[in-house]
Design a protein around this nucleic acid. Structure first.
Lengths: 148, 148
DNA sequence: CGTATACTTCGCCACTTGGCGAACTATAGA
DNA sequence: TCTATAGTTCGCCAAGTGGCGAAGTATACG
């Protein structure tokens, strides 16, 4: 019962649903998710912890950046069905539609630009750390990360 | 977003999952659900309100009894998929297995016997109100209430 | 080294929620 | 009509949760 409850609890919050849907089409880094929902980094971090604990997202760290995405085929049925169910239930949701448009705008700049904006400092022109990874991620074109 | 959140919130509680699974094989009356989870009537009533609000159960009143069951085919996809998902995710759950055995025992007596037990009074032998409806319900043999 | 930075963890606060018992409502039966 | 009873609603309280900012951690770079 606990495993399912961890999932239902994770899904029982507006912000976490938005974050989850933000990852529907592929990987995003933490700063992009922070920008997406417009909340404090610590808050988003806590949400992502709960989602990861439930198995609803995976994360990988590259340099100073942490990338989140939906889990692949190895995830338990419980989780894969939950993601499918939520995505279907929210296809026509106005908030998610707004987020999707917002996200499209965000994706026009690199993660590092975003992070600078967040700390309210001017964007230095020189390449930031982990830029190679970010470039690869952009080239990959919003991978579907092995969804069912 | 609200409709889905109502559902995920309803599913994000141990007791409500147990109540929901109790109805998996057919209709039960409130007193049977109270006995199933062993909580105060007011508590169970509140839970059933939330489940009904989410569309995860329907109810009908017959005399003084209220019967709850899973919704039929008319329910939104969001709800039908949720029920399917939860039921699948909990098929092997030990708590649910215990509840199922418990329920089997409860079903050997009539709802009115149960209610008497709950108020700690001896069961009068004469037929209680709504007994005909209850008998019909027993004859119907745990209807599946039009699930997908 | 030391500094900057991307993120997480911690500590706090307002708000929500699950539980109960008491009071209330509605129906059945004398 | 009056009483009994199946459920619900109300009022309360302890426990949990979402939000924030401050402090902490880990990595990159000079």
């Amino acid at each position: 019962m606990r495993p399912l409850l961890t999932v239902t609890n994770a899904l029982a919050d507006r912000t976490r649903l938005r974050l989850l849907m933000g990852l529907r089409e592929g990987e995003l880094c933490a700063c992009q998710l922070i920008e997406l929902v417009g909340l404090a980094p610590s808050t988003v971090s806590k949400h992502m912890f709960l989602l990861r604990q439930a198995g609803l997202v995976e994360s990988r760290k590259i340099g100073r950046w942490v990338y989140y995405r939906w889990p692949g085929r190895a995830a338990p049925l419980r989780v894969r069905h939950a993601l499918k169910w939520v995505a279907e239930s929210l296809t026509d949701d106005p908030q998610i539609a707004k987020d999707t448009k917002h996200l499209a705008r965000l994706l026009k700049s690199t993660p590092e630009t975003l992070c600078r904006k967040q700390t309210r400092k001017p964007v230095s022109s020189s390449s930031a750390p982990a830029t190679r990874a970010a470039a690869r991620w952009r080239r990959a074109g919003r991978v579907t990360s092995g969804r069912t």
